[in-house]
Design a protein around this nucleic acid. Sequence first.
DNA 1: CATCGGTATGTTCGGTCAGACATAGCGAAT
DNA 2: ATTCGCTATGTCTGACCGAACATACCGATG
Lengths: 129, 129
Amino acid sequence: MNKQIMRKSSPTSLPSLSVRIDLDPEGRIGPGKILLLENIDSCGSISAAGRAMNMSYKRAWDLVDEINRICQQAAVERQTGGKNGGGAMLTPFGLSLVARYRKIERSAESAARKELQALRADIAVGRKG
Amino acid sequence: MNKQIMRKSSPTSLPSLSVRIDLDPEGRIGPGKILLLENIDSCGSISAAGRAMNMSYKRAWDLVDEINRICQQAAVERQTGGKNGGGAMLTPFGLSLVARYRKIERSAESAARKELQALRADIAVGRKG
DNA sequence: CATCGGTATGTTCGGTCAGACATAGCGAAT
DNA sequence: ATTCGCTATGTCTGACCGAACATACCGATG
């Protein structure tokens, strides 16, 4: 791991875009929550997802709650007890939320690429001078 | 002003996009800093800009410092003392930073509009059911 | 029915951050 | 030289936030 660290100014990656969606003045969804959802999808539980991204179970659980609340419907369905103590999975809505976010992110990044490069050029100018 | 407030679920505005630019793993520029820069540009001073957006002078000043640091060059030029006690204005770089950000924001918003509407539809479905 | 692992929730503690004050410096204008 | 308004900077304090613990519950499974 860490293949691309140690490179102080990775010329292709920065500056990069990060996108948030304001669903509610008090509720936003950004890269962090989406990554959590993806990890829940692939890990099958909130706690495993948390561990996978080095996040405490409580924090992950609270975020899931917040996501469900913001969306006014469940993006994650939890099952308590059972075979392996329970688990969690994305609802169809949750899956589509992730897919839509990633698509929006790609569109935005691609639409902004040129301006982003121009901005990088501006900043590089300042660096030398 | 405030022509479109008082509309609890303004159907055209939410969900909306908000864009941040990661210039540095530790330095991002988003809507707040850009708005501050715009206010500095129109008000002519950091303190007036802060007042205009109900932000303490210290906070505004700290943000300006952070912006200049992140960009590795001045986006805001300050003048201490003088005619009205001094003032601040955007440098050419600062002006172009704001312009580029706004353009990136518009591009992103426009590129994502369709998906955003689809997302709104998804959420509306959850609201009724 | 005891075990197991995850969900569900509350509590406590330490660090961080923003806001409120406080003050000094500066340079033009009077 | 005094005034004025803004820059420049430091300190303090309260609020908020996240990490760490601590339990309780739940349901399949052996």
